[in-house]
Each structure stands twice: as structure tokens, then as C-alpha cells.
Computed example of a mutant assay.
Amino acid sequence: MHSEQASWGLRLAAWGGLVFLHFPILVILLYAFNTEESAYSFPLRGFTLEWFAVVAGREDVLQAIILSVKVACLATALAMVLGTLAAAALYRRDFFGKESITLMLILPIALPGIITGIALLSAFKSLGIEPGIFTIVVGHATFCVVIVYNNVIARFRRTSHSLIEASMDLGADGWQTFRYIILPNIATALLAGGMLAFALSFDEIIVTTFTAGHEQTLPLWLLSQLSRPRDVPVTNVVALLVMLATMLPILGAYYLTRGTETVAGGGK
């Protein structure tokens, strides 16, 4: 009879991989509270919250945060609408070209970000659209749609179509059926998809680099800080805030969608 427990070697390898992946995050966390101003000195010279106050008083940081939140909210809202409509159209019906449409939905997140960014920039230039907030939102929405689509289509497949038919048979119109039957069934999947889309949009940098123009989101601000070694503590604090802002929605989405791993189309 085989034991269900993993061997010590496998456990050690797993824990080693986790430490390797999360060690850089731990370094940023520690040095965000370091009293040393301009260098990664070890051991830490002391513990301070001074840099959080500095970040709160930096106008450029606050403007970058506001822009990132605005872009993420708009891109998420657009992705939730388009992703839900696409899932509703594709989850049950078979028609010519369905696989091609599915591929086009998934392609932006499967392609390297630099390819997506160049393609979007070329498209905007050919249409005479100058890079700005609009182009950033559209660029982010292209890969956020598939996140919402995957979550919602998995929930649609778990929802019995007989509920919809019964609602219509009892005299409900399309809006009432959506409001009282469909929406309650897909609500958590829709929310989880939206949270994941927000997290992806908030820390996106590659596509943003090609579509931002003169705008500066928070990830672009962090990138520009690499040439300013005297701002290392401030950069660490901002990086820590970005990690928290992206980690919490991902954890929330995981909690809302756990148990759907075996559902077709339920990719996370």
C-alpha cells in the first residue's frame, strides 16, 4: 500500500522553490522599514516608518497611484462586460467559427506582452489615436477580458439551463431572467474575474510602456526609479504597496472560485 504523503526530498524541493520565489519579496518588505537611506546594507541599521510618510507626501507617487487605480477600474469594467457577453454567447452553442473566436479571446494573454504592446501601438497609430489613458485602458482590457471570460464560462457550465427555461416559462422577460436567475449564479465568478483583472491591470508594465505615451502609471514610475539610487527606500515602500494591491484581489478571487478546478473552462 502506497503512502499518500510526499517524500522528504519532494517536500524539501517544494519548500526550496517557495523560498526561492518569495525571497525577493521578503527583501523588499524588510528594506521598506530600514533606516538606511540609500543602500541595501545588512544587517538592517534599524526599523522606521519614515518612508511611508515620505511616500504619502510625494505628489508624483500619488498621481501615479490615482492613474493606475483609474485605469485598472476602467479596464476591469470593460473586461467584465465583454467577458461576460462572450461567455454567454459561447458556453452552450456550437457554430462555425466558435473555436476561432475562443482563440482570439485567449491570444492576448498567451502572447508575450511586448508583441501585444507593439501590435496595439501600431493599431492606434494607424487609426490616428494618440497614446494616453484611453489607449492604456484598451490595451489592458485586451488581456483582462480572458480572465473574466474563463471564470464566467466555467460558472455558466455549472448552471442548469433548465432554471433559465423555467424562468421564461413562468413569464419572466429577458431582463428579469438575467437579474433573478443568471446574475445570482454567476455573481461570485464575475467578482473573482473582476478582482483578478484589476490585479493584472494595476501592475501591468510591458503593454503600458507601448500605450501610455506621456502618462505614468505606478509600474512605470517604479521603472523610472531604477536610475535614482537615493530613492531606494521610497521605491521599496511603493513596491510593497503594489504587491499588497495585487495580492489581496488574487487571494480573494482564489477564495471565491475554489472548488471549480474540475470544471471545464475553469482555468484560473
Rank of each mutant, 00 (worst) to 15 (best):
T142Y: 01
S68P: 02
E261R: 14
G83C: 04
A166P: 04
F96S: 09
E261L: 05
G83F: 03
C144P: 06
L82G: 06
A141S: 10
T208N: 04
P249D: 03
L241P: 03
F178V: 02
I28M: 15
R157H: 10
A253F: 01
L190N: 07
D94V: 00
T48H: 09
K98A: 10
T262K: 15
A86M: 09
V54E: 15
G267A: 11
T209M: 13
E99F: 05
W175E: 03
S122C: 07
A119Q: 00
P233Q: 06
I164A: 05
L200R: 15
P43T: 09
T177P: 04
G128N: 02
L74P: 07
L78Q: 06
A141N: 00
T84A: 11
K125Y: 08
F143K: 07
F96C: 02
I129S: 04
G259I: 08
A56C: 08
K268L: 15
E36R: 14
V232N: 05
L103K: 01
S227A: 14
G113R: 07
I186Q: 06
A39H: 12
R11C: 08
F42S: 11
A64V: 10
M1R: 13
T211E: 00
E215W: 12
I65Y: 09
H214F: 12
S7R: 13
S224P: 01
L62V: 09
G266P: 09
F42A: 14
E37N: 12
E99S: 15
F124S: 03
L29K: 07
P108F: 02
E36K: 13
S38R: 14
F52C: 08
I106D: 13
Y255C: 07
A88T: 10
W175P: 01
L163W: 07
G46L: 10
T211G: 02
G171S: 08
S100M: 14
S122P: 00
I114G: 03
G117L: 03
L220H: 01
S160I: 04
A39I: 09
L82W: 07
M243F: 15
T159M: 15
F96G: 00
M1D: 04
H214V: 13
L170A: 07
A187M: 10
Y255G: 10
L240H: 11
V81K: 14
D169N: 11
T135H: 03
A264F: 11
F20S: 05
I114Q: 04
G16V: 01
F96V: 15
S100R: 00
P184L: 07
A53Y: 11
T257D: 09
L62D: 06
A239V: 00
V148C: 11
L127M: 15
L183W: 13
S167H: 04
M243A: 14
W175L: 15
A56W: 07
A154E: 08
G16Y: 03
F42D: 08
L222E: 03
A192V: 02
N236R: 08
R58L: 12
V263Y: 13
G265S: 06
P43M: 05
R258C: 10
G252T: 02
V238C: 01
I109D: 01
Q216C: 05
